[in-house]
Design a protein around this nucleic acid. Sequence first.
DNA 1: AAGCGGGGAAAAATGGTTTTATCTGTCCAT
DNA 2: ATGGACAGATAAAACCATTTTTCCCCGCTT
Lengths: 321, 321
Amino acid sequence: MNFTLKQLRYVEAAGRLGSIARAAEEMAISQSSITAAIDALEHSLDYDLFVRTPAKGIHATPPGLEALQMIRGFLNHSRHFEADLQSVGGDETGVVRIGCYGTAAPAFLPEILRAMKDRRPNITVDVLEGDMSSVVDFLRDGKADLSFTYEMGLDSGQQFEPLFNAPPYALISTDDPMSELPGVTYAQLSRKTMVMLDLPYARDYFSTLFSRRGLSPTVGHATRSADFARALVAGGFGYTILNIRPPEFDGDKSAYRALPILDETEAPIFGIATMRQTRQPRTVRAFIRTCIELRDAGAFDPLIVSAAPVSSAKKNINSPH
Amino acid sequence: MNFTLKQLRYVEAAGRLGSIARAAEEMAISQSSITAAIDALEHSLDYDLFVRTPAKGIHATPPGLEALQMIRGFLNHSRHFEADLQSVGGDETGVVRIGCYGTAAPAFLPEILRAMKDRRPNITVDVLEGDMSSVVDFLRDGKADLSFTYEMGLDSGQQFEPLFNAPPYALISTDDPMSELPGVTYAQLSRKTMVMLDLPYARDYFSTLFSRRGLSPTVGHATRSADFARALVAGGFGYTILNIRPPEFDGDKSAYRALPILDETEAPIFGIATMRQTRQPRTVRAFIRTCIELRDAGAFDPLIVSAAPVSSAKKNINSPH
DNA sequence: AAGCGGGGAAAAATGGTTTTATCTGTCCAT
DNA sequence: ATGGACAGATAAAACCATTTTTCCCCGCTT
């Protein structure tokens, strides 16, 4: 019954930075205080958290590593607790840290952040970007309270709140006569050169769309950036397949067009993943509530390119009003 | 970012006891310190937690009540966190607080507590007894980390780990010639006088056993205590129906006998209820693990009186070895 | 009205952080 | 090899926050 939150914060910083000196700097405090905190905690726990290497800093022992993990979790919890306590007296206050699948971020995050700023000005939102796999890691490690991502590839122990179906569509240069069609099929696409979005889950997903139909795409370029993929399409290097309509896309005058895919396609579901918990902090619930309100108001409809009948694992959740 | 665990403990005690003076006594500290802690927290939260009535103590404001609830939760979490942190370096250490359906407690708790004492001497176990409904409240309010109870009547948001099927049996005085039979039916019983265990869920359950078959029991006495019910049976005041064989029951020489019920009966499942959580504290997991080991070793088999084929909502979980 | 129980407030005492200052060991560049 | 830079350890002193002490006020009871 004798540790303080301050101690834990000092120890956590030391562990994270691998240096007492840098932890002291970050905490705006003297080295001795960090040392004292570590000593006190080690003494009360009766095992060593760090090995100190003269002139080289510190690094955690195996039990220290485990302890640090737990300390991070506890400090997180404490942060949320404080915000919740603060919120009892008035408006929701605190920080929500969100993870976001980077490729999808520019398309819808600005709108959500604006809505949050309007409706809950006292909640600040920290954004972490990453690919599909790092985004679930953020959740597991407690680096993010919630993550925007596709439903596929979530851990067990994680919950999912759907926001919209995102059927794949083809982005085709206006130089290509095919771009005048009302829609295309995978068979038609497979005869053209594809610009492949080369990211952990996306890669496999796009390949599967073709292989499931006995086709295979002709990949000309591969890139990690959706922006660059669009630029390549505009430059005439082939078509690409995406799921979310880019934000600044203005239909007719640009160098490419988004064409719905006419084949019957299962649309992946994009939404909010959280750790399964008994009780979410208020701030996080407020954030999720806001997103759901936006969804129900149809705010995400413009992100979808769809013409063909859409089938989905769940019932269609777009514009349920 | 400026509250301390000490503060929270002081405030919690004050709220719980409704008196700064008594909180000071409990915490073995001066009144002024408690006052200071409350003032500091109220100031940093910017709303009042308590109204002070001169000469009458304090009581929580509505937001204060909510805050206290959250503080309790956080202190709980903190207690578990400390135990977990301590345990990283060696054996599991800490406190597990269990709730137990009082009627069932004497039959199996001693064995579990002994096993825990043997295997995890550093874990102390606090026991809270109550009826079926209070036992789930313990869980919800965080007064208990886990509860022993029947599966029926759990909240959503609670998890259940089965320990054994507990089919109802009849306890009949040896003076009654019926006690010589290998078993009885509800029809036979309904013609005799019943001693009814008069507790929240049990009451309805026992009635249903009869009414489902178009019968109704003739209730002579009703009592809240299983002990007293057995004494009444021994005294010739009728039979009773129970689910768990009493611990000191020694078959032949006593004044009553346990007879299996021959009708096809659905056996309620007795086991461990916990709040559904991402991660249980180590101590709690260690406790549950021990119970499961005992179950798998058949330690709970003697608690069951059964002869008729048992059907159960789940597959039979007794002696799965 | 006096006594008691309970809370508030201010000053003094205490104790625990924090800083300052100094020391030691390792690495690295000269 | 040797001096300097770097990173921590340590001890004493300064500082700050908690805690105790003391005295006060209020409202109820006798």
